[in-house]
Deep mutational scan, measured.
Amino acid sequence: RDLEAFAERFKQRRIKLGVTQADVGSALANLKIPGVGSLSQSTICRFESLTLSHNNMIALKPILQAWLEEAE
Rank of each mutant, 00 (worst) to 15 (best):
R1T: 09
D2K: 00
L3A: 00
L3S: 03
L3C: 02
L3T: 06
E4P: 06
E4W: 08
E4C: 07
E4G: 06
A5W: 04
A7G: 03
A7I: 12
A7S: 04
A7T: 03
A7H: 02
E8M: 10
E8F: 06
E8L: 11
E8A: 08
F10T: 02
F10C: 01
F10V: 03
F10D: 01
K11H: 01
Q12T: 14
R13S: 13
R13E: 12
R14Q: 01
R14C: 01
R14V: 00
R14Y: 03
I15P: 03
I15T: 14
K16T: 13
K16A: 13
K16D: 05
K16S: 13
L17S: 03
L17D: 02
L17G: 01
L17P: 00
G18L: 03
V19S: 11
V19E: 04
V19P: 00
V19H: 10
T20R: 04
T20W: 02
Q21S: 10
A22V: 06
A22E: 12
A22S: 11
D23N: 10
D23T: 11
V24L: 09
V24C: 11
G25N: 03
G25D: 04
G25Q: 08
G25H: 11
G25Y: 05
S26T: 11
S26F: 12
A27S: 10
A27I: 06
A27L: 07
A27N: 06
L28P: 00
L28E: 03
L28H: 01
A29N: 10
A29H: 08
N30G: 11
N30I: 02
N30R: 09
K32I: 09
K32P: 06
K32Q: 13
I33K: 05
P34N: 04
G35W: 04
G35E: 05
G35S: 08
G35P: 02
V36P: 06
V36T: 05
V36L: 14
V36Y: 12
G37K: 08
G37F: 05
G37C: 10
G37N: 06
S38E: 10
S38F: 10
S38P: 12
S38I: 10
S38V: 09
L39S: 07
S40L: 02
S40P: 09
S40T: 15
S40H: 08
Q41L: 07
Q41S: 12
S42W: 06
T43K: 03
T43P: 02
T43H: 07
T43L: 12
I44T: 00
I44W: 00
I44V: 09
C45M: 07
C45I: 07
C45R: 13
C45H: 14
R46F: 08
R46V: 01
F47V: 00
F47I: 02
F47W: 01
E48M: 00
E48D: 01
E48W: 00
E48R: 04
S49N: 12
L50Y: 04
L50C: 12
L50R: 11
L50E: 06
T51G: 09
T51L: 07
T51Y: 03
T51F: 05
T51C: 11
L52G: 02
L52P: 01
L52R: 01
L52E: 02
S53L: 02
S53R: 06
H54G: 06
N55I: 08
N55A: 15
N56S: 15
N56G: 13
M57Q: 01
M57K: 01
M57F: 05
I58A: 10
I58P: 01
I58Q: 14
A59M: 13
A59E: 09
K61S: 05
K61H: 10
K61W: 10
P62F: 02
P62N: 05
P62A: 02
I63S: 08
I63E: 13
L64H: 02
L64F: 05
Q65Y: 15
Q65S: 13
Q65H: 06
Q65T: 09
A66Y: 07
A66C: 05
W67R: 02
L68P: 03
E69N: 08
E69V: 09
E69R: 08
E69L: 11
E70D: 08
A71P: 02
A71L: 05
E72V: 05
